[in-house]
Amino acid sequence: MTATSATPDAPVVALTLGDPAGIGPELVARLLARDGTLASANVVLVGDPWLWLDGQRVAGLQVPTQPVASLADVRGRPDRALPAFVAVDTVRPQDVERGQAGAAGGRSVLQVLDRCLDAAQAGQVDAICFAPLNKFAMKQGGLAHEDEMHHFAQHLAVQTFFCEFNTLDGLWTSRISSHVPMKDVPAYITKDRIVEAATLIHRSLQANGVAAPRVAVAGFNPHNGDGGTCGREEIEVIEPAVRELNARGLAVTGPFPADTIFLRARDGELDAVVTMYHDQGQIALKLLGFSRGVTVHGGLPVPITTPAHGTAYDIAGRGKADVQAMANAFAIACRMAGHQPRTSA
């Protein structure tokens, strides 16, 4: 690991190990061993000591850290040549079966993330980057929401529009509906939600360094509705939303047929695509680059990022995990944290 460390005013970025039964601990070890990781943030790892040791063992690495008593002590530490480490006690080794979703692992993930969210609310942390988690394990462990995004929003008392972004290299996507059954999707397609989603991703891209984002909106029906003969959402909802966005000064285009819009994106014509439902964007991005994609939780008061792939239970513990998506998620967290208004702890 390089000796380069962050400047005194660098943002504090919290890293978590993710699901104890998955590849997260290995990914964090690989990330923190990379040259340059510590140059852009004051990094603090939050996790169970035994799990952190196991992640290093699986990765075949030894990554020194600087123990600190709490997240409140991270920002003011004078020596940042090593990542800080806040030890927690959330799960026992005997309660984790590698490669299997379990309630104990899900509870651990929730406890660690909640600690980071509390620190963010207190101004002690500027961004959070978490290693992959498993929603089923978290629901077994007490998650009361459809996904972690809604848990974050409730914990942070968010009242305005929020949604997941998925990113791949320079391309971002947002969606009008997310983890809901397909039969419920049409109810989510409203003018207000499209305007909010497009505005949010436009603003978030600017926070990530894109001065004039090129945002397009996907249609919902086959062939963009074929002039209303194959569905009218494009005519009655999506087109009016695009006109409203234009009236507000945002250079948003669309709707474009969902089966071709990502060809434009692939060819570099777009910075973002607003999709109507989960798989409309996810399939495209994962085909374009499964091992590089990142999920950004948009609309929250603190940037929160994670790899777009999952816990990879099938290869957990085998030392084969690809760190690139984790590194990309960390880089986005650092960039967005640098654009966030900072509250003193």
Rank of each mutant, 00 (worst) to 15 (best):
V63L: 06
T65N: 03
A81F: 00
Q62N: 15
P64F: 07
D54A: 14
W50M: 04
V28G: 03
D54T: 15
G76H: 13
D79R: 00
R34M: 10
L61S: 12
G47T: 01
G60A: 06
L82W: 09
V43Y: 01
L38W: 05
W52E: 03
G76V: 10
V74I: 01
V43G: 02
P49H: 07
P49L: 05
S70H: 10
W52C: 06
P49R: 07
A41F: 13
D35A: 15
D54Y: 13
R30M: 05
T37H: 09
L82A: 04
A39Y: 07
L51F: 02
P67N: 08
L71D: 05
L27F: 04
D79L: 00
A72F: 09
Q66F: 06
G76R: 15
A41C: 06
A72D: 15
P67K: 09
N42E: 11
D48Q: 12
A33G: 15
D48K: 11
D48S: 08
A29D: 05
L71V: 07
R57F: 00
W50Y: 06
A39G: 12
V74K: 03
L51H: 14
A59I: 01
A81S: 15
A81I: 00
R57S: 04
G36K: 14
D35N: 15
R75A: 14
V46A: 00
